[in-house]
Design a protein around this nucleic acid. Structure first.
Lengths: 209, 209
DNA sequence: ATGATTCTAGAATACGCGTTCTATTTGATC
DNA sequence: GATCAAATAGAACGCGTATTCTAGAATCAT
């Protein structure tokens, strides 16, 4: 092998993540990422074919990690408890990993990538979408007996939109979400779930994990 | 008077609003705004001292209009009904004025202005902030008998964050919020309000408008 | 008609960006 | 030690941006 690499892709991704989490993805320019590492701009391009791929990987990495953990909560039994736990999970996650949360919740995918997914990441992005979609559909079927659009929308509102809404102002202000929020989110999520159609009431714990 | 103006400030603001609502504030460049009007870029600078002031005025105008209407709903009596109406107002407002909604809800103030408020707009921005803050505090005192941080946070969650969360996915997709959403928002807002401290229960309609 | 004034018109400037290009250095292998 | 592939190093390029500058056109008061 010819020469040891001074700037591992991992370091570059870290620097880009840090900048994007602190000042937004637009602030993660090639020049600034390189500056953060003390590297010349050219070195970045030895590791990543373009800024789109680099920032796409930053977003995708964070999103995959979050989705894995969120999905595993939502997959639990019984599903009604799982949904409430998933809503609560979002709030707690923001406390535990504020950087990840700022990346994913304060900005949109388009802020990282401009246009379409680059070839290299397209299949990972598709798998992530499918994973998230299937996790929600599955919970929806278990909870309502159907995964029609209205039921999915309601469930998504309860487990994603509501906790997100609760957490956003604090994320923007750079604060830790206050303890008050957990009860608020659980109560509202429960109310949202109550509006969903429940097919046949099943006995509590009948299929408990 | 020397020469009639071909490009009134009003036309320029309209073009900028249209671009910002459709493609985001970053897409509202001076060149594109001028192009939309068939004007040279220089003419924009006869009306507005900088892009920051122009886009700031776009945001501020939309925000002031929204706040005026939202505030008047929240100011009604009895306050509990007013809060629920305010939550519902947000959803309906998105249907009635999708462009305004996209400006205010899909983007942040910083996406319009980069840094600080320009001198020319600072006092309007401050008045808007105070107006919004005082509207919420007032409703909070009427509802809970206190405007401490926790009560304010809960009320804000019910009347702002929850409807915003419900509406955001549809705004992003460029769809009209479905009718399903109104019930969902009212139900969850009611649940959020129920978690707030209620000082002494007052008789219904005791101070009705 | 003349002239002052305020606009349009659009080229010119300076800057930051992503990206590419041309060295130059490094270190394992022959 | 010579060789060579893979890395660093950083200047250079093309582009789009906000902004400024210079010129010309229009309109009202005189």
């Amino acid at each position: 092998m010819p020469r040891q690499a001074a700037f591992h892709p991992h370091l570059i991704l870290d620097a880009a993540s840090r900048l994007a989490a602190r000042d937004g993805p637009a602030a993660a320019t090639i020049a600034r990422i390189a500056g953060e590492l003390g590297a010349p701009t050219g070195s970045i391009y030895h590791r990543f074919p373009s800024r789109d791929v680099l920032l796409g990987e930053v977003w995708l990495g964070a999103a995959e990690t979050f989705q894995r953990d969120f999905g595993s909560v939502l997959a639990r039994d019984p599903v009604h408890d799982a949904a409430l736990a998933a809503a609560g999970f979002v709030v707690e996650r923001v406390r535990r990993r504020p950087d990840e949360a700022r990346l994913l919740m304060l900005h949109r995918r388009e802020d990282f990538l401009g246009g379409e997914w680059p070839e290299a990441l397209a299949s990972r992005a598709q798998a992530l979408r499918r994973d998230a979609d299937e996790g929600l559909r599955s919970a929806c079927r278990r909870l309502c007996g159907t995964d029609d659009a209205a039921a999915q929308r309601g469930l998504r509102f309860a487990v994603v939109d509501v906790p997100l809404a609760a957490v956003l102002p604090h994320l923007r202000a750079g604060e830790v979400p206050p303890p008050l929020l957990d009860g608020l989110v659980i109560a509202t999520a429960r109310a949202a779930l109550a509006t969903l159609p429940a097919p046949r009431r099943r006995r509590r714990g009948a299929r408990g994990a």
